[in-house]
Every structure is written in structure tokens, then in C-alpha cells.
Computed example of a mutant assay.
Amino acid sequence: MTDRHGDEFGLDPGPAPWPGQVASASTTPAPATTPVVPFGQVGRTEPIQTRARRHAVQKRRGGAGSLLRETVIILVSAIVLSLLVKTFLVQAFFIPSPSMHDTLIEHDRILVSKLTPGPFDLRRGDIVVFRDPGGWLTNEVVVDPGPVRSGINSALTFIGLYPADANKHLVKRLIGLPGDHVTCAGPGGQLTVNGVALDEPYLAAGAIPCEKPFDVTVPPKSMWVMGDNRQDSADSRFHTGDPGGGSVPISNVVGTAFVTVWPLERFGVLHNPSSTFAGVPDPS
């Protein structure tokens, strides 16, 4: 059934155009389901919200990758720097025994300058760290930390982030340089270097300079070392029967200790007691 305009009954054709008005596409609303394509995006059917989410994900992934690269670069640089410092400048060690009381005690962490010997010369009175010349540490008890911990410790020690293992190094005070004549008359006597008796303020409380007499001349390229805790130090005096007569090759020296860094209550600079050896002449 149709009305008088000939349209289907029940459907509103909308208002008739005014006389002279021409109907056009602009007067007809677009279907609600037709996506609006922005200018310049013709042919792209991906919704704007989807593209925005994809770009955000890509940006996050790119940022995470950049952060990972920066972290790796920082870690590698820190390891390389630590290795260079440990190799050429400073190395950390820990004290395992009471032989240097009261200057150093067990479990102290010390820093050792590797510029001595080298650019700087060794001096009498220096606290030196040196590699075992052979047989000095055979009686030391070393606790096995296990393969995993041992591997980690070795790696950290290699790059300088962990104190060096005590079962490979010793720490003593340098008493005699090459050519020095070092003597001690025994209990009650003073230690002498090149004929000059030493006043040793660094000795442990109650310690005496020596309990047995000895008389040595330090060989070339070697040094004579003794612990500050004389009655509890297996130093040069106890190895007079070894090659070198108890003296240690200077080539074995790792460096000189200059500061205690741990524990914090033990923090302090390790000074050379220069006044003790001020009057000692050069060997004749």
C-alpha cells in the first residue's frame, strides 16, 4: 500500500526538498558502521587505536633493549676498570693470622699499592705483601669453600673485587734491604741494622725484638722481613736454612700496604715508621 506520494506506507521519506533545492550526498548521513579514514590514510584499514597500541609496545621493547645494552656496557666497563686498577695500581688482601698484631689483626682488609716496588722504591719499615717464596705457608690450614664458592672467589679475585686468597701471600714488615747487615743478640737485645739499634714502637704488646740470636747479611735483590708480633711470626728468622738464608726475593713483592679499609672501626692509614730507621746508614 502506498501513500499519495507513491512511497511505501509506514516509512518516513524525510522532508521534501524546497523548491529549487537539489539533494546531494552531503545531506545524507553516512552509515554508522563505515570507518572514517583520515586524509592521507586512504587504503589503510587498521583502526587508529590498534596502531597506537602497537606503536606503544614497540616503543617499550625498544626502551627495554636500550636499557639492557646500557647496563651491559656499564658492567663491562666496571669490570675492565677494576681489572686495570687491580693489575697496575691497588689490590685488596685480607689478614689471616696474628703475625702482625697489633698493627694488623685477623680478618682486616687492607689495600696494597702496586706502585712499590716500581715507580717508588721499597723502604725499611714498609708493610709488604709478597708471594710465598716456597714452603712458608705449608703449615697453614686453609678452609675449602667448595667448588662453586671457590670458583666465584677466584673470578672476583682475578678482576679485583675480592681480597686475594691468604694461602698464596704473606704480609710482614720490611726490616732489611739488599746488603743490609741485620742482627739480634737474643732475648733482651735490640734488633740492629747496619750497626744501629732500632726502637720499634710497632711491636705487639709484650713482644720482644727476638728470642733467638741471628746475624745475617741480606743478599742482592732480596729483603729481610719480620712480623710485628715477633713471638707468633714464622718470618725470615725461621727460614735461614732455606735458599736465600731466609731472605725473600724482591721480585716476589706484590706491593706495600697503605690503608686498612675493613672493618670500619679498624679503618686507618698504615704509616711507615720512618723515624725508627732514620739513623740507619746505607750498607757499606
Rank of each mutant, 00 (worst) to 15 (best):
G6V: 05
D7N: 15
E8L: 09
F9E: 08
G10C: 04
G14N: 02
P15S: 09
W18I: 04
P19T: 05
Q21D: 15
Q21I: 07
S24D: 14
T28E: 00
T34F: 10
V42G: 00
V42L: 05
T45Q: 09
A52Y: 04
R53Y: 06
R54T: 07
K59N: 13
R60V: 01
G65D: 04
S66D: 00
L68G: 08
R69Q: 10
I73N: 03
I73S: 07
V76I: 14
V80Q: 08
L83Y: 09
T87Q: 09
F88P: 02
L89I: 05
P96V: 07
D102V: 01
T103Y: 04
I110L: 06
L111H: 03
V112C: 04
K114C: 00
T116D: 02
P119L: 08
F120I: 07
R123A: 07
D126P: 06
D126L: 10
P133C: 04
G134M: 05
G135R: 12
W136E: 05
T138P: 02
N139Q: 11
E140R: 11
V141N: 05
G146M: 08
R149V: 13
G151H: 06
G151W: 14
L156S: 08
T157A: 10
I159G: 02
A164W: 04
A166F: 00
A166N: 08
L170R: 00
V171H: 02
R173W: 06
R173V: 04
R173Q: 06
G176M: 14
G176E: 12
P178C: 12
H181R: 14
H181T: 10
T183H: 09
C184I: 09
A185K: 07
G186E: 13
Q190H: 14
V196S: 09
A197G: 07
L198H: 03
L198F: 00
P201S: 08
Y202G: 06
A207F: 01
A207L: 06
E211L: 11
F214Y: 10
D215G: 10
K221Q: 15
V225L: 06
M226W: 02
R230K: 14
D232V: 03
D232Q: 15
S233Q: 07
S233G: 03
A234M: 09
H239W: 14
P243F: 13
P243H: 15
G245Y: 06
G246L: 14
S247C: 12
V248Q: 00
I250W: 11
S251T: 15
S251P: 10
S251E: 15
V254R: 00
G255I: 01
T256F: 03
F258Q: 08
F258G: 02
W262L: 11
P263T: 10
E265H: 11
E265A: 13
L270V: 12
N272T: 05
P273C: 05
P273Y: 00
T276Y: 01
A278Y: 06
A278F: 08
G279V: 14
D282V: 09
